[in-house]
Write a protein that binds this DNA or RNA. Sequence first.
DNA 1: AAGAATCTCCGCCATC
DNA 2: GAGATGGCGGAGATTC
Length: 323
Amino acid sequence: MPKSDAPPHLVVVLAYDDLRTFEFGCAVEVFALPRPEMGPDWYRFAVAAAAPGPLRGLGGITVQADGGLELLEQAGTIIVPGWPGPGSPVPAPLVRALRDAHARGARLAAICGGAFVLAATGLLAGKRVTTHWSHAAKLADAYPDVDVRPDVLYVDEGSLLTSAGSAAGLDLCLHLVRRDFGPKAANKVARRLVIQTHREGGQAQYVERPVPARSGTRLSALLALIRENPADDWSIERMASRAGMSVRGLHRHFQSTTGMAPGAWLLAERIARAREMLEDTALTIEDIALRVGFGAGATLRNHFRNSLGVTPGAYRARFTANL
DNA sequence: AAGAATCTCCGCCATC
DNA sequence: GAGATGGCGGAGATTC
């Protein structure tokens, strides 16, 4: 977490001619939106032009950057949102600016084809890296000393991060938020993203859908198991013994990887599942309750109402009416 | 619709 | 000495 006496962490996103607007948008969505609720330490944001000259984006828009490469000198994180093509040359001044920034301690994060830009700096040698699946082979050919992993969403090598195609850029950006501000903040941002794309009428709140845990976490096997069998009896004690830790330890691990207490996570998971069943099955609410692990329909109704602001019946009616 | 039994959460401290 | 871990207990939530 940034210290409160330092100026907030500056995120600089590169813009270039023929800009990949979708990848660019991922970074904007996470880092550039005003988020007063996140407090005064939240990121500052700027767009830097990778080269002089007019900048157009895919889709025909024109882009106005905040400045040129000099912005990279103050950046804590630099994001390369795609790149026009694997064969597109990376300008020497850009390479130099990225190297300097990295030497100074800045993080470099590439979305999709942006990995080619990072590779051109030579900093990726020996590192694990990913990119869009359709470019993976080209990247590996062009840079034999880079360890290309085509099958992951993103790779965190500390100060060098890369993500797979398009939308994986969101996962990468959320990952950065989690690193900087913790899982709770990442969940908040993630939830916001969903609200904006799926906005429904009224003030209905959304279940906190937990940010997926990094695989390899001590908890990830347990979480998967619970998701497969939500109806089982998942007392805290049973979860703990499944995960091979004490109850207290389970609490702590849940908090740190998920941002929620075990019970709260389980509840959110069961409600999310119930919601899916309301949407695409005709099961009775009683049935759904049992299948997702509530002891009775009344319990489901209570929790559903509490976290979504609608009764299950009303939710189903509205959902099917909106189809 | 209300209440008693049970479970969960989390700060605190000792321990490894 | 920092960092993770485990146990305890009480306020509060949950269940039926």
